[in-house]
Amino acid sequence: MPARPCGPYRPSGTTARSTAIHRRALPLLLIPLSGCSGIQSALDPAGDEAAAIYTLFLVMVAGGALIWLAVVGLLLHAARRREAPWSEKTAGRLIAWGGVAFPVAVLLALLAYAVWLMPAIRPWLAHSAPAARPIEVTGEQFWWRIRYPAAEGMPAFETANELRLPVGARAVFALKAQDVIHSFWIPALGGKMDMIPGRTNTLSLLPTRAGVFRAPCAEFCGASHTLMAFSVVVMEPEDYAAWRRAQAGGNPATGSEGERLFAGHGCAGCHGIRGLTETASLGPDLTFFGQRQTVGAGTLANTAENVARFIRNPDKVKPGAKMPAFDMLPDGDIAAMADYLVGLK
């Protein structure tokens, strides 16, 4: 008989069997706990805004648990058989205090706390600071176009599907959408904000811990919505500055076989690589592609095999992707191009 960890079903077996069931059920109980940390968890904050949301969450859970215990306690008390029931006057007083005064006071306190917290979660006054030039992030089906502004004499540049930020510096984002509504959400750094076609939404985040985080699209946007994510790499300021300086130069031509094939098969018609091709920006920019964590906007690990798989048939990896299949190319060509792209570091 299969073990059934959930539901009221009770096998008529021995204690040994129910122990076995408990042992099998234990890993299932641990699954929700795995959400408490890791690269995509609001419960493991790495930024000021996320920390404020985490505190709010803890207060709500603890408060809700206390109230639940009190209500269940009252229920048990009311269900108990007793000699002399409460007088109508005492019961009326309990209802007035416990049913009216207490909820009003608690809701007033919770509302005050939440409204007081709002500027910490959405620090909009930070936007008007003169130094804050926004990083423009545009949601497209099913990837992220990221434009860094010119800063400290370094030119503006475009990248895709991976955001790099210095730790301890406030980042401001101008959020846009190309086709349908997407939503920008880095759970480890803060709350989410929608990206709406024809509109620019502004969000500000302050990363406080270096690390690599995952940011999923948080608004259903089509067949590959669940495969639309980007990586966020929060770096030490000096590492970030070095990375930022290197971006301007891009990947100049080396004359490799993969590079020749990349241009020859028309990839450069949609994908830009700074230093090699400048103009194309229909698809994701591929400059320094080898540095990225993933291929296909958070879909697969960034390895030559996965890149080859994506080139061969993007729609199989990512349903609804606009890039056409290149499965008519010889395997050798695809492998050479994949090696070239993974080598762009």
Binding site: L108, A112, M118, P119, H127
Partner: peptide
């Protein structure tokens, strides 16, 4: 109570969101 709740943001929100 409802008027108190509606007025609550006046105490905490000090500026418009741009």
């Amino acid at each position: 109570v409802a008027v108190l709740f509606v007025a609550m943001p006046l105490v905490f929100i000090g500026a418009c969101q741009p």
